[in-house]
Design a protein around this nucleic acid. Structure first.
Length: 787
RNA sequence: GGUCCGUUAGGCUAAUGGUAGACCCUCUCGUUUACACCGAGAAGGCGGAGGUUCGAUCCCUCCACGGACCACCA
C-alpha cells in the first residue's frame, strides 16, 4: 500500500466479490436475532444511475449497515420497477419491436428476458456503490410473482367493494391516450389567450372571459355569483353562445368568483374540475367536444377533427369576424399536464376503474400520523396530499404493456367476471375466464379487459412483494416492516399508495419508520438532462471511489436537498487515505504485540479511550435516530484528533518507550483504530473492510467487519483532560509557529504550577510531543534551544 | 392562494439558550522512520425589525429573499 498507488477500484471489486461469495448480507430466516426489515425502493431499469439515487440509496444503506452491525437480522431485499413506460421504451429500443404489435404476454416475456440479461449489469451499479442488499431476495415488478400479487390486490379490493368501474369524465392524456390519475398530473405554465366574448341575452350583451372558446359547442350553462349585484337581474334567463347558437341557462353559484374576468363563468362539459362539479350539481347535460385523441368531435360542427389548439385559434378568428370578440389578451397561466409527457390534460368521458377512497381522508391522515417520519416535517406533504385529493384513484391505463386487470366482462350484460386467486397471474387477452357462462345472464360470451393496472398500483405493493419472497413462517415476522426509505418526490405516489393499500388489505401500516432523502442539486439547481448539469455517479466513483461518494452522501441530513460538491468527495478521499496511513503506522508499531501482558493504561491513553467511548455512544444514538450525518461527523472529528494529536503524542512511546508504557500505547492504538473502523464501516464499507481484513481479522476472527459487533461504550466522557492536554499542546505549537520554528524544534517549556500539575502522569508524553528538553514551572513560555 | 423548509466566513456547510465548528480558498511556517492525497498557525461569519429571557444565531411574531409541495387555473 504505497502512498500513490492505492488501487481503490481493485479493492472495491475484491470486496464486492467477497461479500457476495461469503453471503455476508444474507438474511437468515432461521436466525433468532431480531429482524430489521427494509422496504427498498425498486429503481427503474433505465440505463444509467442518477447521482440522486446514488445519494439516497447510500443514505439508506448507512442505516442498513448500522442495524446489521448492531445485531439485527437484516431483511433488505432489492427489486427493479419494470412495469412502466421506461422499461417498455428500453426494451422496444433494444429489441427493435413495438409492444403494441405483439401479444402482451409475449412482450412481458421479452422484458423478462431482457431483464435477465441486463439486470446483472444494472444491479452492478448498486453493488458498486456498496449497497448491502441481500440480492437473493430480488423481484421485478413485472415478473409473475409481482403480477400475481398486484392482481390479487385488485381482487381483494374488489371484494372489499373498493373497486368501481365508471363511465364518466376523467382526466385524460390525449398524447398517451390513457386515463391518468390525479397524482400523475402536474402544473405547468403555458402561454394562452384570454378572450372576452359577447353572449346575447335577448337584446342585451353579456361579456364572458375565457381561455377555452373551443369548448363553446359543449356549453351547458353560464354562472354568476349570487352575491354579485351586477348580474342579479339575469336570474332565470338564458344566454346564447355565439357561433354555435346554443341557448344555455344563466345560473347562480358561489363557486363563481366575482373578480375573475367579468365575473361570469361559462360552463362546458368538461373544461375543468369546476365544470364537472357544476354538471353534477345542476344535472346539466353532458356534451363531449373533445375526443380521446385530442380532436374536436362532431358537435363542434365545422371545427370537427381539428386539434384543440387549432380549433381554438380558428374559433377566436371566427368570433372576431362575427363581431363577438370584445378583447383578447395574451396570458400565461398554469394548466394541468401529464407528468410523463407534458401534454395538457383534458376531461374525457371513458370507462375507467377507480379505487374508491375519497371517503377515507380522515383515516388516511391518521395512518400518516402513525408513521415515524424522519424528518418529521415531511409528514406535512403527505397531509397536504390527502387534504387535496379530489378524485378517486384512477388505476386503469389504456396502454398495452403492464399488468393486466384479472377481469372479463359478460358480453351481454357486462357482468364483471373475476379471475380465481389460484389462477393468478392471468392475462385475460390470452386466458379464458374461470366460468363457462355468465352467472347473471347465462350468456357464454365474454370480453377480456384490455386495460392494464397503473404502475403505482403494483409499486404500492412492494412490502408484500418482498415479504412473499420468504417462506410462510418468516412472512409473519416481517410485517410490518421497520423502514421505508425514499426520496421526497414520491411521497404522494409511492408512500401514500403503499400505506393506503396496506391499510385496505391488512388494516395495518406497512412499516413503522419512514426516512425521506433530499434531492441532489448542482449549484443549487435540480440536475436534469435538459439543463445539461448532470453528474453521474460513475464519473465520481471512477475518479474518487465509491467510499468517497458515500462519504459525500453522508454529509447531508435526511430531508435536506444537498448540492453536489466535488470538494466534499475529495474530503472523503482524504479521510480514506488518512485511514490507510494511520493503519499502516499503527500496525508498524504493533509487531509482536501482546495486549494480555498489559498491566495498566497510561493516563493519556485512558483519557483518549474515554473520549472514544463518548463518540461511540453519540454515534450509536445518532444512527438509531437515522441521523447518520451527525454520527459521521462526530467520528470524523475525533478520528482527526486521533491522527493529529494522539498519534503524535504516543509516537516516541511506541518507538522507544519502556515496556508497559509502550504496551499501553499499543493497546490504545489497536483498540481505537478498530473502533474507528467500525464506526465508519456503515458509511465507507470498502476501505474499512480492506483495513480490517489486512490487519484485524486474524485476531478478531469475524469474517467481515460488516457483521462484526458494533462497539460498546464502557466509560464515556464528553470532555476530559485529553482536551486540556491538546489545548496546551496547541498553545506550544502556536508559539512555535509565530516564532517561525519547526514543530519539532527543541525547546524548554515553562508552565504554570497549576497546568503542570494537571499534566501529572502525562508530562513525559507532553515532553515527547513538544520535543521539550525540560518543563519548568512559572509563567507560560517556550524557549528555543539554538542548534 | 395555502403549507413546509431554508437564509451562518470569499465559496460550501455543521452544531448550539451562555466562548459558532469543519472543508475549499487566502496568508505565514514547517515536515520526509504513517501520510505532500501531509502537518502547524493566522485571517474571516449568524438576512432585517420587534418580542420572550439574566442572556437569543438558536424560542415567538412580522418582513424580505430563495427553494419545495399542494391547490387554483371560467
Amino acid at each position: 500500500m504505497a502512498k500513490n498507488n492505492f488501487d481503490f477500484k481493485a479493492v472495491e471489486k475484491k470486496w464486492i466479490n467477497f461479500w457476495e461469495k461469503e453471503k455476508i448480507y444474507k438474511f437468515d430466516s432461521k436466525s433468532k436475532k431480531k429482524i430489521y426489515a427494509i422496504d427498498t425502493p425498486p429503481p427503474t431499469v433505465s440505463g444509467k444511475m442518477h447521482i440522486g439515487s446514488a445519494g439516497s440509496y447510500s443514505q439508506m444503506d448507512f442505516i442498513a449497515r448500522f442495524m446489521r452491525m448492531r445485531g439485527f437480522n437484516l431483511f433488505y431485499p432489492f427489486g427493479t420497477d419494470d412495469n412502466g413506460l421506461a422499461t417498455e421504451r428500453l426494451v422496444e429500443k433494444s429489441k427493435k419491436v413495438l409492444s403494441r404489435d405483439m401479444p402482451r404476454d409475449k412482450f412481458i416475456k421479452l422484458c423478462l428476458d431482457y431483464l435477465k440479461k441486463e439486470n446483472p449489469e444494472f444491479i452492478k451499479g448498486w453493488k458498486n456503490i456498496g449497497i448491502s442488499c441481500d440480492w437473493d431476495f430480488y423481484y421485478s415488478t413485472i415478473n409473475a410473482h409481482s403480477r400475481k400479487i398486484s392482481q390479487w390486490s385488485f381482487l381483494d379490493l374488489y371484494k372489499k367493494k373498493r373497486m368501481k368501474r365508471r363511465d364518466a369524465p376523467s382526466m385524460w392524456c390525449p398524447e398517451c391516450k390513457t386515463g391518468v390519475a390525479q397524482v400523475e398530473v402536474e402544473d405547468k405554465n403555458v402561454p394562452s389567450t384570454f378572450v372576452d366574448v359577447k353572449l346575447k341575452i335577448g337584446k342585451e350583451d353579456l361579456i364572458i372571459s375565457t381561455t377555452r372558446p373551443e369548448l363553446f359547442p359543449a356549453s351547458v350553462a353560464v354562472f354568476y355569483n349570487p352575491k354579485d349585484k351586477r348580474y342579479e337581474h339575469l336570474k332565470g334567463k338564458t344566454a346564447k353562445i355565439p357561433l354555435f347558437d346554443i341557448e344555455v341557462p344563466i345560473l347562480e353559484d358561489e363557486r363563481t368568483s366575482m373578480d375573475k374576468g367579468t365575473g361570469i363563468a361559462y360552463c362546458a362539459t368538461f373544461g375543468d374540475q369546476t365544470d364537472m362539479e357544476w354538471q353534477k350539481a345542476y344535472n346539466l347535460p353532458i356534451k363531449e367536444a373533445i375526443s380521446k385523441d385530442g380532436k374536436m368531435t362532431k358537435i363542434a360542427g365545422k371545427y370537427k377533427d381539428m386539434k384543440v389548439k387549432e380549433a381554438r385559434k380558428k374559433i377566436i378568428e371566427d368570433l372576431r369576424k362575427g363581431g363577438f370578440l370584445v378583447k383578447q389578451e395574451k396570458i400565461t397561466h398554469p394548466v394541468n399536464v401529464h407528468e410523463r409527457c407534458g401534454t395538457e390534460i383534458e376531461f374525457v368521458k371513458s370507462k375507467q376503474w377507480f379505487l374508491k377512497y375519497l371517503d377515507l381522508k380522515k383515516e388516511m391522515l391518521k395512518w400518516g400520523a402513525e408513521l415515524n417520519w424522519h424528518p418529521k416535517f415531511m409528514k406535512v406533504r403527505y397531509d397536504n396530499w390527502v387534504k387535496g385529493l379530489r378524485w378517486d384513484w384512477l388505476i386503469s391505463n389504456q396502454r398495452h404493456f403492464g399488468i393486466p386487470f384479472p377481469v372479463w366482462y359478460c358480453k351481454k350484460c357486462e357482468e364483471v367476471i373475476l379471475a380465481r386467486e389460484e389462477d393468478l397471474p392471468v392475462d385475460p387477452l390470452k386466458d379464458k375466464p374461470p366460468v363457462k357462462m355468465c352467472p347473471k345472464c347465462k350468456s357464454k360470451e365474454f370480453i377480456p379487459e384490455k386495460d392494464i393496472l397503473n404502475t403505482w398500483f403494483t409499486s404500492s405493493m412492494t412490502p408484500t412483494i418482498a415479504i412473499k419472497l420468504t417462506d410462510k413462517k418468516t412472512q409473519k415476522k416481517l410485517f410490518p416492516m421497520n423502514l421505508r426509505p425514499q426520496a421526497h418526490d414520491i411521497i404522494s405516489f409511492w408512500l401514500f399508495n403503499t400505506v393506503l393499500k396496506s391499510q385496505l388489505h391488512f388494516k395495518k401500516n406497512p412499516w413503522k419508520d419512514v426516512t425521506i432523502s433530499g434531492f441532489v442539486t448542482l449549484k443549487g439547481e435540480k440536475m436534469s438532462k435538459s439543463k445539461g448539469n448532470v453528474v453521474t455517479p460513475q464519473e465520481v466513483t471512477d475518479k474518487y471511489g465509491a467510499d468517497a461518494l458515500r462519504f459525500w452522501a453522508a454529509s447531508s441530513k435526511l430531508g435536506k436537498d444537498f448540492d453536489y460538491q466535488e470538494k466534499d468527495v475529495i474530503t472523503g478521499k482524504r479521510l480514506i487515505t488518512k485511514l490507510l496511513n494511520a493503519s499502516k503506522f499503527v500496525f508498524m508499531n504493533l509487531k509482536n504485540y501482546d495486549y494480555k501482558k498489559l498491566k495498566e493504561l497510561e493516563k493519556i491513553d485512558k483519557l483518549f479511550l474515554e473520549k472514544l467511548d463518548f463518540i461511540i455512544e453519540q454515534a450509536t444514538r445518532n444512527f438509531e435516530e437515522y441521523n447518520y450525518s451527525m454520527a459521521k461527523s462526530g467520528t470524523e472529528k475525533l478520528f482527526w484528533e486521533f491522527t493529529d494529536n494522539y498519534l503524535e503524542i504516543v509516537k516516541k512511546r511506541v518507538y522507544s518507550g519502556d515496556r508497559n508504557k509502550k504496551k499501553s500505547a499499543q493497546y490504545t492504538l489497536y483498540k481505537s483504530l478498530l473502533t474507528f473502523l467500525k464506526l465508519f464501516a456503515p458509511i465507507i464499507p470498502f476501505i474499512t473492510e480492506e483495513i480490517y481484513q489486512e490487519y484485524f481479522k486474524k485476531d478478531e476472527k469475524i469474517k467481515s467487519i460488516h457483521i462484526s459487533n458494533w462497539p460498546e461504550a464502557k466509560n464515556p466522557k464528553s470532555a476530559n483532560d485529553f482536551d486540556f492536554f491538546c489545548d496546551l499542546l496547541a498553545k506550544v505549537r502556536q508559539t512555535k509557529s509565530s516564532a517561525k520554528k519547526a514543530m519539532n524544534a527543541e525547546c524548554v517549556i515553562t508552565l504554570t504550577k497549576q497546568n503542570k500539575k494537571a499534566l501529572e502522569g502525562m508530562l513525559d508524553d507532553f515532553k515527547n510531543v513538544t520535543n521539550a528538553k525540560e518543563i519548568k514551572e512559572g509563567k507560560f513560555n517556550v524557549e528555543f534551544i539554538e542548534q
